Amino acid sequence: MKGTASACGSATVINAIATGEGGAFAIDLRVKSTVSLTGDPSEISGKVGNTEEDPELIEICVEKVLERRGVRDQYGAQIETNTELPIAVGLSSSSAAANATVLATYAALGGEIEPRDAIEIGIESAFNAGTTVTGAFDDAAASYLGGGVVTDNESREILKKIDIDPEWRVLIYLPPGRSYTTEVDVERIEFLGDLVEVARESALEGNVFGAQTVNGLIYSSVLGYDSQPALDALSAGAESSGLTGTGPAIVAVSKEKNVEKIINVWNSKEGRVLKTRPSREGARIENG
C-alpha cells in the first residue's frame, strides 16, 4: 500500500519565537512525500530526497499515524520526500514535510484525517524530533490549510485567517548558508517581544505586508543578518520584504510590474533568487 501527498512551504509574517504568537502564509513551493507501507513492523525508514538530512521527523510522523490507527504492530514503512523548497532557510520545509507525510500515510492506509488532527500529529512529531522551538503552529497551519494565518502557537489557536491574492508575486532571496531553528538563542530574542507584538497587532488589523516587513527587520537585527537585501527590494518597488523564519532567506511580495527590478537588485548579490506566488491550496493527496 502506498500513498503520496504534498504540502506547501510558507513565508513568515510574524515569527512566534519572541511572543509565542505568529503568522505565516502559504507559498506555491511544495514538499511531496511518498509512504510505502511494508509488512515488516520492525522498520520505518525515511529518506529526505537526495540529501543527508536527518529523516527522523518523517519517520516519527508515520509511526504516530500507525499508532493512532491501531496498526503499528502490522506495518513498517519506507518514506521518501522530494522538495521544491530549499531546506533550513526559513520556508517551513519541516512543517511541509511533516504535513505531507502524515497525509500520505493516511492515504496509504485508505483513510481520511481532519486537517486539525493532521497538523497536530506533525507538530508533536516535530517536538519529538527536536526540529522546532515553538511548535510552529503558524507555519504548519499555513502549509496544510493554504492561505495565511495569525496564530497563538502556545494554545494552537488560529486568531485570524488571511487571504493573500495569488496574483501577488513572491520573490525569495537565498544567500549562502542555512539556519536550523533549534540552534537559535531564544533568550536573546524574547526581550524584543514588545516590538514584535506591535507587528502582530498590525497583522491582526489587516496590515499583513507592513507586519511582515517590520518583523523581518526586527529579527534580522537580533539574529545578525544584513537587512539591506530587504531594504533594496522595498526600494525597487516591493510591497513588503523581510527575513522569513530564522533565515537566512528573505521574502518580498510584489506586483508583477516590479518583479524584474527586484530580481535584478538581488541578482547583484551572492546567492540565488526564487520566484513563486501565494497559495490558497494547502496539503493535498497526489497521484504518485
Rank of each mutant, 00 (worst) to 15 (best):
G49E: 03
S240N: 10
Y144E: 08
V102S: 03
T246L: 04
A211F: 08
V65F: 02
E53H: 09
A238V: 11
S179A: 15
E270C: 07
G282K: 11
Y180I: 14
E114R: 15
E281W: 06
V251D: 06
A26Q: 05
Y180D: 04
G9I: 02
D165E: 12
E124F: 04
W168E: 11
A104G: 01
I113D: 08
E157H: 09
P115W: 01
A126Q: 08
G210I: 11
G224W: 14
A141H: 08
Q212G: 05
E21C: 14
P175F: 13
V150Q: 02
R68E: 14
I162E: 04
S179P: 00
T213N: 08
N258E: 13
K269S: 03
I164H: 03
S179C: 13
N215D: 09
A7V: 00
G23V: 08
A7Q: 07
E260G: 05
F137Y: 15
A77I: 00
W266G: 01
Q74T: 07
A98G: 11
T134L: 13
V35S: 09
G22D: 01
D40M: 12
C8L: 02
S10V: 07
T105G: 04
V31E: 05
E67V: 07
A141F: 10
G130S: 13
D40A: 03
T51D: 05
A24C: 12
T12V: 10
T101D: 01
D152R: 03
D138K: 03
A107T: 05
G242M: 13
S279L: 08
I60P: 03
A108G: 06
A140C: 10
T132V: 14
P115G: 07
V133Q: 02
F209A: 05
N15M: 09
E67L: 14
D73I: 14
T181P: 01
F127C: 02
L204D: 12
R272W: 14
L37F: 10
W266F: 11
G70I: 04
G245C: 10
G130Y: 09
F25K: 00
L243I: 08
E53P: 01
G46F: 06
P229I: 10
T34L: 04
G70R: 07
I172S: 09
V150S: 05
K47L: 11
E157D: 11
P248F: 09
R116S: 14
I262E: 06
G9Y: 00
N258L: 08
L192M: 12
G39R: 13
G39I: 08
D226L: 12
G49P: 02
I119N: 00
G177C: 09
R68T: 08
G9A: 08
K255H: 14
T83C: 12
F25W: 06
A142K: 01
E43I: 12
G148P: 02
V259G: 06
P175E: 06
C61K: 01
